[in-house]
Nucleic acid binder design. Structure first.
Lengths: 248, 248
DNA sequence: ATTTGAGCGATTGTCGACAATAGTCATGAG
DNA sequence: CTCATGACTATTGTCGACAATCGCTCAAAT
């Protein structure tokens, strides 16, 4: 089913040197990137099984690296794992999402405060420029939702990066971002939220540029709470719709 | 050197069913627990290499599960990993520790607030009882530092657990706790910090028992900042001592 | 008709072997 | 004496095979 018939597998394992992809040469990295892409593109929905053999055959590699990639996914919370039964893509209910937002709020608020201290002038300019570009794209597409392609995260990642904290970066910029990109495939945002979000981004950026850490932190916390409320209510209606259809 | 001569290895891999240890039967879990124990006991100091072959032979298993355990350690930040060069136990400098505390402060403060909401009456009683016990052990040992054996974490884990947030639990209760247990092997706490810490714990517990979320959160943030300052200054003096000795 | 259990297929868990890479050490040229 | 060069070794990366386990099907007994 997910097996796209790509011949040219089989024996081509390492063509000549290990330069078979733009990745770091480690097959496990390649497998990891592959699965992550599948997740981000929605090919693998919540609850999908991650079959080691299937993936390894599809990639033309052995099960070892694939297994490692899957375990990595598991470590970051993108998959759940049952011994002797394999891994499935995590399926998040409303409670889970609320917990994720709890962490995001706490950490990104802090990150915004840190960014207000640590960002270079260049970074502050980039922050503003990014928002200008987002606004341009929004009006151009005359869309009421934030421009597609993870643009919303562009802004948040800039701040996360400016916070100069590797731990926060790993948690929010890597793991949580993957989690939320999973969610984006299932639930959209309410109409009108885009403009509001952009405005909130502007306020946060202004506070950061002004070096006002406490204010930036506060605004970011509010922004994330608003985002949470938006997504949570979308999930709520989705859930009740599904309940009506599938009786479970 | 690290090879303790325990016969009874060799061929006993899966004695009869998989019941060879209290673990889940997965050899990778066993390897993970083993390495973690070595870390917690200080057998493996910061910078130590994690040799797949050595560990696997010591445990009488093959490299596969050991490799998986090491990668798991890497995912949680306890080890750093270089492709084709293996993994080493992470060595944290002052900046790293400061970043860890930053995350702990943000998340545990939030956890304290959540705990004030969600804890059952039983849990609140246990919280108080735990502090009573800590106090008893401190006066009994007439020690000025918090009772050994991770008692300090007892308190924090109770709160983390009471927060009813799996994500916070995974980050603070699992990963960060391991990181800090690594640190405990290198740096002690200042004299007198024990009593002060206990007092702070009491205040936090009172706020939680009273259901005062904001206050509990604030007190926890202060408590962790104090703990950070304590450890950081210890590291500072340690570092300068080492500088004088080793010129690096 | 329900339940139990034996067999079977699919998938994961583990292993040992081999390939590839990085680091080391000796050797030799400048 | 220093630096480049080339084996050599230790360690990681990958593979294919086999064992163990789980879930399912289907038959048989009550």
């Amino acid at each position: 089913m997910t097996i796209v018939d790509n011949r040219s597998n089989g024996v081509i394992n390492l063509g000549e040197k290990g330069v078979l992809s733009k990745d770091g040469g480690l097959l496990a990295d390649r497998a990891y990137a592959y699965i992550r892409t599948q997740l981000a593109d929605g090919v693998l929905g919540p609850g999908s099984r991650l079959n080691e053999l299937e993936i390894s055959q599809h990639l033309g590699i052995s099960r070892g690296p694939v297994r490692e990639a899957i375990r990595r996914l598991t470590s970051s919370g993108l998959a759940i794992y049952e011994p002797n039964a394999g891994a499935r893509v995590v399926s998040l209910d409303i409670g889970d999402v609320a917990q994720l937002y709890e962490v995001r709020e706490a950490l990104e608020a802090r990150a915004a405060g840190l960014a207000a201290h640590h960002m270079t002038d260049d970074e502050r300019e980039t922050l503003i420029a990014t928002l200008d570009e987002h606004e341009a794209r929004m009006t151009e597409a005359s869309s009421t939702s934030y421009p597609r392609g993870g643009s919303d995260w562009d802004f948040h990642l800039l701040i996360l990066k400016g916070a100069r904290n590797a731990v926060i970066w790993r948690i929010c910029g890597d793991e949580l971002r993957d989690m939320f990109s999973l969610l984006r495939n299932q639930h959209g945002s309410s109409p009108g939220r885009g403009h509001r979000a952009l405005q909130e981004h502007r306020w946060i950026a202004e506070a950061i540029v002004a070096g006002n850490a406490d204010f930036a932190s506060l605004l970011m916390a509010q922004h994330i709470r608003a985002s949470r409320d938006n997504l949570l209510s979308a999930m709520q209606t989705n859930a009740s719709k599904n309940n009506r259809l599938k009786s479970r």
